[in-house]
Write a protein that binds this DNA or RNA. Structure first.
Lengths: 366, 366
DNA sequence: TGAACAAACCGTAACGGTTCAGAACACGGT
DNA sequence: ACCGTGTTCTGAACCGTTACGGTTTGTTCA
């Protein structure tokens, strides 16, 4: 410890006031309202503070009195690696952090361990509001947050009526993407998706499991794919869907392997995230499949690495998403009605999608 | 707002106690020490709480009394994008978040805007300690944190005596890497490095600027390179060093461009981060340079994308780094002496390094 | 001359909890 | 009838600060 030795006890505003022979109010004013006391006295207060090793009013006591914690809480998916390893999630965090920074408030990551039913941390967090990102619809932590008498904003994931929410139109964006793939002529497709529910299932996902997914975004994207492909005459029960609980590039690779082993004739792999798509790309390379000649691969999110890899994907403004959430939350309080912000998306056709290798071409585009 | 309507004022422990006709102590015990009251009464308390919309003891008031905020503060570099976009930084954050999660405490990102001299946020943060990551040695926010009567742990960046610190041996690791490059026979090398000081300099960095760098890690790596190359007979003033303030792949590309435009004869580009190296790789491709036949490129950190790209780099255990920092901080308090944890690194030779294209080969290896 | 007013400072009452030393009571044993 | 031992609940002190409504002092101006 290189910090200066302190007297028996940490100095407080009161002890400082006693030492100076002034009232506590005056010391408080020295820090919070410089215009309320003479510059000389203020200087004297600050000097004595330094001498006593007093670093200014205690944040917690201040928060209690002012009823503002000066921080917003972030509730996110059970496994943190998703939040930090997926650039899309990172973008959301960054945007949110930026909004908080602008407002001069902290951003507190509230713990909610894997399978952790312990919501105590949510109750114990000293925050002025919550941003909830990417948790399943029935998450107990979310419920705990809603109990707290502070505003809450949802980003993307839980779908709940009456709450402030920020996110893209996942259905519409996915329909665009699917139409692109259909338009290229693909009829034998496979899907790689992220975790659908809280229980681990690193395997094919039944239609029931798809419809029952607790992760709204995945459910929405799958539903949109189903709609589009069925409209194109592809029965959904003929489309294999492989799910992965974790969300690393390797998981995408293993999912692709599992799917292609069982369904070698698919000509397109639609992935519900870029990370999974990058893994699929790696697996395709390992098998000697040319992309897109032998296999079309698409992602979702539009992260940097995807762009660099030329991935066909849907880009969404993740930074803005986080920022919007923060601003929404910090601007709340006066507002009465709940607000929903829908962000634009953009289909970005790269070099990983093309017509299928099979002889008969279904080409509907110009 | 879908939250239940509340009476005039939010319920408190006192109002609950009054409603029930018991003491505040008892209500408090119902939440914190269930064994201190009869199960029936506890049940009655909890039921009444639910009825009144009381979500449990106020976190801030509790923190004031117990003198534990239940969160650790994270102070990081001025620009957040570094923290969220660089997977190495993300790994540190994740590890730290994991350690916090294990301990059931929150992790608060304390704002400290770019060029923001306003350290108020550091004083206002209700935290039990600080982790400082990747800030310049003379950062005012760091100073503010040290004033606070809470423990502090440094990760990687600021080099300050007497403080707890976690990080790799940057010098030794860089020497290993440099020896690898020297051993391959390279004598005409260039260096791409990250921000050296708080002022922007997207240009070549003079030797003075290198030695005066406020970012300790960069300074250490450059110094190690200098030592190794001079030992191999390469005068350091013949080695161009290009600096970039921001830290995206594109910045690495533009830095490589700038360096290669002026020094087309260099046979190796040593980058102080994988992100910069990935950019250099892209720029090499753009120029039609074969890697490593025409140009050797190395990185630092060992992030996933680097591995996938086959980059020669130094791997460091970023997750463990963050975890160690968290554990160190949360385990502090009883401890007296300051502690320093040095993490192991590993040189990972990939497919982006090889002997130089020039005729004369200097091969010192087996 | 004294009324009006601004500047500088102060006293008190919260803010919403936790904690500790007991009080009140019930119960079995002697 | 008395004692010791739990169990269950309570009263009061305290955590460190800021909000609010003063009082005091000095200056200005009709």
């Amino acid at each position: 410890m290189n910090r200066p030795m302190r007297s028996r006890r940490q100095a407080t505003l009161a002890s400082l006031a006693a030492e100076l022979g002034v009232s506590r109010t005056t010391v408080s004013n020295a820090y919070n309202r410089p215009d309320q006391l003479s510059p000389e006295l203020r200087k004297r207060v600050l000097e004595t503070a330094k001498r006593l090793g007093y670093a200014g009013p205690d944040p917690v006591a201040r928060s209690l009195r002012t009823r503002r914690a000066g921080a917003v809480g972030l509730l996110l998916t059970e496994n943190l690696s998703y939040a930090f390893r997926d650039p899309a999630a990172g973008g959301v965090l960054e945007g949110l952090a930026l909004a908080c920074e602008d407002a001069g408030v902290g951003l507190t990551l509230v713990p909610g361990g894997p399978g952790n039913e312990d919501v105590a941390a949510v109750h114990r967090a000293g925050v002025d509001g919550f941003v909830v990102y990417s948790v399943p619809d029935d998450d107990p932590h979310l419920e705990a947050a809603l109990q707290r008498p502070v505003p809450t904003v949802i980003v993307d994931q839980p779908q709940l009526d009456g709450l402030d929410r920020v996110g893209p139109d996942d259905e519409a964006a996915t329909v665009d993407l699917a139409n692109h793939v259909v338009g290229l002529g693909h009829r034998q497709v496979g899907v790689l998706c992220m975790r659908l529910s809280s229980d681990r299932n690193d395997d094919f996902a039944s239609q029931y499991r798809q419809q029952d997914a607790h992760y709204h975004v995945q459910r929405a994207r799958l539903a949109a794919l189903q709609r589009t492909f069925e409209a194109a005459g592809v029965p959904w029960d003929s489309v294999p869907v492989v799910e992965r609980f974790d969300h690393h590039v390797d998981d995408g690779a293993s999912a692709a392997r599992q799917l292609l082993d069982k369904h070698p004739r698919v000509t397109a792999l639609i992935c519900t995230s870029d990370i999974l798509a990058l893994g699929a790309l790696a697996e395709a390379g390992r098998r000697g499949l040319r992309v897109p000649a032998d296999l079309t691969i698409t992602g979702f999110d539009g992260i940097g690495e995807a762009t660099r890899a030329g991935l066909t994907t849907v880009h969404q403004p993740v930074l803005e998403k986080g920022k919007a959430a923060g601003q929404l939350l910090l601007g709340a309080g006066d507002r009465v009605a709940s607000k929903v912000i829908t962000l634009p998306t953009e289909l970005r056709v790269g070099t990983t999608s093309g017509p299928p290798r099979t002889a008969e071409q279904h080409w509907f585009g110009p």
